[in-house]
């Protein structure tokens, strides 16, 4: 008995000690180790190095010599934020608790083309309808719908109200200017209300290995008609440079529909779905890990171009008019 028990505990001790072998300790949390963790993960999983012609190894050569063991958290954050800024990608952030790095150049260097006060005063007025996140108002015989964030979910009943009002109009304007994105399923649901048949609107591929060109195969992205009813009359979608991420996808969905056009300025992009990661010092980050192209193989990361390029006129705005909405109304009426 004693012999067997000893053998058993010896056996148990040996295998219990395997934990260190099966699962080595976590990497360290010193400044240099944190820098290397972030740089290596971005190098292994970021999806736009080739498309943006970025040399990530050269960026490492540029930033790594500035890292030292004595540097404080703020200094390290600023260095890492500067390194990530080089990716020129709105889906790249480093979150530290005390600050969140970002690159918003995709809209900051371009005309705003949107005035929320003007919309409220001249178009929505005081009696506009609110159906979940959708704000809508009849502008004579055209339905104007404003959706400010795809992060706010639309319900089927919200959408049904819009579809029924649209059916009593000559056309619909969907204003997604300044809509910075959110959940892609909300974009698909809204677009489904205007689709007559299932259509491929884009193709997406995901990183499948550490090489800058390692991707899975292109997969079709489709929209399908809404089962509870659709509106197939003319639709104009208003976009600007601050229409980003899920809003870029929405613009592309609408662009392929035969009854819809896009108007305004191109979207800001955001065609890569972000993947998340964490550093051993407690900071988290995200960056794009997919690529999406339209039917002409143009990257959605570069934004969706509009069918009609129109900027907001300061003169029109001073008269209380949004000339993008005015143009959209004219387009709809010319289709009837």
């Amino acid at each position: 008995m004693v012999k067997q028990t000893r053998l058993f505990f010896l056996f148990l001790f040996v295998f219990s000690s395997c934990e260190q072998w099966v699962m080595p300790q976590d990497p360290g949390s010193g400044a240099l180790e944190v820098f290397d963790q972030l740089w290596e993960d971005v190098y292994a999983r970021y999806s736009f190095f080739d498309h943006k012609n970025l040399d990530w190894e050269q960026i490492r050569e540029q930033y790594r010599p500035e890292v030292n063991a004595e540097m404080g958290q703020l200094e390290l954050y600023e260095l890492l934020a500067d390194m990530l800024f080089e990716l020129r990608d709105g889906h790249v952030n480093l979150s530290t608790g005390f600050n969140r790095s970002r690159n918003w150049e995709w809209y900051q260097e371009f005309p705003v083309n949107y005035d929320e006060n003007l919309i409220e005063e001249s178009y929505l007025g005081r009696d506009y309808w609110i159906s979940g996140p959708l704000q809508h108002q009849m502008l004579d015989d055209v339905l104007y719908v404003n959706y400010r964030s795809f992060a706010q979910s639309i319900s089927e009943s919200n959408l049904q109200v819009v579809v029924e009002r649209a059916r009593r109009s000559r056309g619909v304007i969907i204003d997604v200017r300044n809509n910075g994105g959110g959940n892609l399923s909300n974009a698909s649901l809204l677009a489904s209300a205007f689709a007559e048949e299932e259509m491929v609107y884009a193709r997406q591929r995901i990183k499948s290995g550490p090489g800058t060109g390692d991707f899975g195969s292109w997969e079709d992205m489709k929209i399908s008609p809404r089962e509870d009813g659709t509106y197939l009359g003319p639709v104009v979608v208003l976009t600007n440079r601050r229409s980003y991420s899920a809003t870029t996808f929405f613009a592309q969905m609408m662009k392929v529909l035969p009854n819809a056009i896009t108007l305004g300025d191109q979207t800001g992009g955001g065609g890569g779905t972000p993947v998340f990661g964490e550093l051993t010092n407690g900071w988290t980050y995200r960056f794009s890990a997919t690529q999406t192209i339209d039917l002409e193989e143009r990257q959605l990361e570069d934004g969706v171009l509009t069918d009609l390029r129109v900027d907001l006129s300061e003169l029109a705005a001073s008269r209380g008019e949004d000339n993008l909405i005015a143009t959209a109304i004219a387009v709809i009426r010319s289709n009837n």
């Binding site: 999983r45 995901i206 990183k207 499948s208 290995g209 390692d214 899975g216 195969s217 997969e219 079709d220 993947v275 890990a289 997919t290």
Partner: peptide
């Protein structure tokens, strides 16, 4: 699961 997503690499919806 795949390199990035939940579906294994090689998995295709088609």
């Amino acid at each position: 699961s795949g390199y990035i997503g939940a579906n294994p690499d090689g998995y295709s919806g088609e």
